[in-house]
Each structure stands twice: as structure tokens, then as C-alpha cells.
Amino acid sequence: MGNTNRNRIVIIEPSPVIRLGMKKMIEENALFTVTGVYNDIPSFKRAKGDKSVDIILVNPTIVNAHKPFAIKDLFSDYPHAIIAAIHYGYVDSETLTGLDGVLNIYDDSAGMAKKLRRMIKMFVHNEEKPDNIDLSDREKEVLVSIAKGLTNKEIADDHFISIHTVISHRRNITKKTGIKTVAGLTLYATFNNLISQEDL
């Protein structure tokens, strides 16, 4: 999901007034761009809608025939997209909880932007924090070098890898451990017996 560019949104909603109104309101915020509006899911699929979409807003009443938890399955070609409901009138709560978020048509444009931002934030949070996966052997070696206070260049030379690879290891170590600072990584390495405090 691109953080640098505007977040891409697709709207699937049978009422033209609502889908065009939402598009206009969402685009009042510079963070978002609506890359397509569709009448229903088949027309979205036929059009091979935006493959790098971040959020698909869909009116859940148009898929009533399916079981509520199946809505997300309809978008299995879009595993990285957030699927959220466009909400007005009556939708049973089970349907809504099966989705990643809800946008209410009575929200003003600032309210919509806030909800969309929150969905993206939660999603990125969930996606980038893998379950507690152990560090690979290579990552452990790099971690020990970091703990000893070596620079990226020195680590690259010591391990015969490129600086780019060192940076990528560092990123993964931080992702897996949740620890960001060099001092914190040094603590981590000692507490996990990768290095003894006398070595430092």
C-alpha cells in the first residue's frame, strides 16, 4: 500500500446520487482519490477495476443473497484491499462486523476522511506486524553487529553483503522484534543471549 501517494478508493453502490456524491466528498480530502465508481460487483469485475486499490467501499445490501461473511470472499482477487461498507438504511450488524470498516452516508467529508484514514492505519498496523516470528540466523548475525555499534557499511563489509541488504535486515529485525533504537537492539541481543554484556 503506497503511503507516499494518495490512497486509492473504489465505490460500488447502486444509487448514482450516492456514489457520485461520495466520490465528490471523499475527493475533497487530498489524501484520497476515487479510481472508479460502479453500479454493482459484476460490473466492477468485468471492468477489471483498479488492481492497486486500497479501499473498496461497497453497499452490502447488493450482496444480500450471500451470507454476510462471504462479502469479503467476493473480493478475493484483491487480497490487499480494505473492504468497507457504505451504510444507510438497514444493514444487520453481523454483515458490518464481517467487513473492515463502515462509512455512513450521513458523515460529512471530514468525518469520512477520518474514518478512511483510521481504516488504513489499522490495516497497515495489522499487516506490517507479523506474529512473533523468530529472527533468521543471518538477522541474528546482523543484530549482533548492530549491538556492537558497527555502521551499515562496516556490517556490509564484514558479512559480504550490500548496504541495501543490511538495511533490509534491519527493517525486518525491527518489524519482528518491535524494537527500533540501536540501544534497544543491544538490550534485545543481550537478553536473548546473542551477546554478553561484557562484550560491549
Partner: peptide, 13 residues
């Protein structure tokens, strides 16, 4: 950032 790291260490290790 350092506080976050400290929390992680105390909770996990």
C-alpha cells in the same frame, strides 16, 4: 522510541 523498546524488552524477555 527508547521507551517503546524498553517496554518490549521488559514484557517479552
Amino acid at each position: 522510541a527508547a521507551l517503546n523498546d524498553l517496554k518490549n524488552i521488559l514484557i517479552k524477555y
